[in-house]
């Protein structure tokens, strides 16, 4: 089990080592000590290994992650798990802005709160936030599921496409073209599956409200001018 102390080892050396791992590596569990808020820690990992980071991280931790499980035992800076393709990223603390931005797949779990623009332009990723999320979250969200056990800030889901937003608490306001929707069986099943993958129990799907696209802005039309 390799342990890399970022107080002594350069970030470049850590990421290079993670990128060079062979597909059949037996070094499947990595510990990163003293991350010290450094940026781009464990970005671009493309193997099903586990990277456990013991402390706070800066911007873009686990960016473009594919297949790996990255656990951040602390808070995460801007853009944690940005553009993730697959795998799982878990933040035990809070996350800054743009958590899970443009993510294509995989699961991002934030055990604390997430700041503004959580899930911005998400493209298939599932994001679960145990706390609350900030303003403009799920802006232009294309697909995937954003599950929030707390509250959502202003302009949730502005200009949303086909992503599903499940919020258990209050929503300060909805953005352009985002509306509350009736939850059907498939939505409920999907929500339960995401909660199970996030290892969250004791929460009922019935406590959530579903928000999504009214699809009124899908085509340019003069009648929509006020929304643009």
């Amino acid at each position: 089990m390799p342990t890399v102390d970022l107080a002594e080892t350069k970030l470049r050396d850590l990421n290079s080592a993670l990128h060079k791992l062979p597909h059949d590596t037996n070094e499947t569990r990595w510990i990163v000590a003293n991350p010290g808020g450094k940026h781009a820690i464990a970005c671009g990992v493309s193997l099903p290994i586990t990277v456990e980071i013991e402390g706070h991280v800066g911007y873009y931790c686990a960016g473009m992650n594919s297949a790996a499980t990255v656990v951040i035992r602390g808070n995460a800076g801007v853009g944690v798990a940005e553009n993730m393709m697959s795998g799982q990223v878990r933040v035990t603390g809070d996350a800054s802005q743009a958590a899970g931005a443009t993510g294509n797949g995989g699961l991002l779990v934030i055990e604390g709160n997430a700041s503004a623009r959580c899930g911005i332009s998400m493209k298939g990723i599932d994001i679960v936030v145990k706390g609350s999320i900030g303003a403009m979250s799920a802006f232009m969200a294309q697909s995937g599921n954003l599950v929030v056990l707390g509250d959502a800030g202003e302009a949730l889901g502005d200009s949303i496409y086909e992503a599903r937003l499940f919020v258990r608490g209050s929503v300060a306001s909805l953005g352009a073209d985002c509306i509350e929707k009736q939850m059907n069986q498939q939505d409920r099943a999907e929500l339960n599956a995401v909660l199970a993958r996030a290892e969250i129990s004791g929460v009922s799907a019935d406590d959530f409200k579903l928000y999504g696209s009214a699809r009124r802005l899908y085509h340019f039309h003069v009648d929509n001018a006020d929304a643009y």
Partner: peptide, 9 residues
Amino acid sequence: IKIEELREL
């Protein structure tokens, strides 16, 4: 910082 990430990637 974004450029640094792209370089690391």
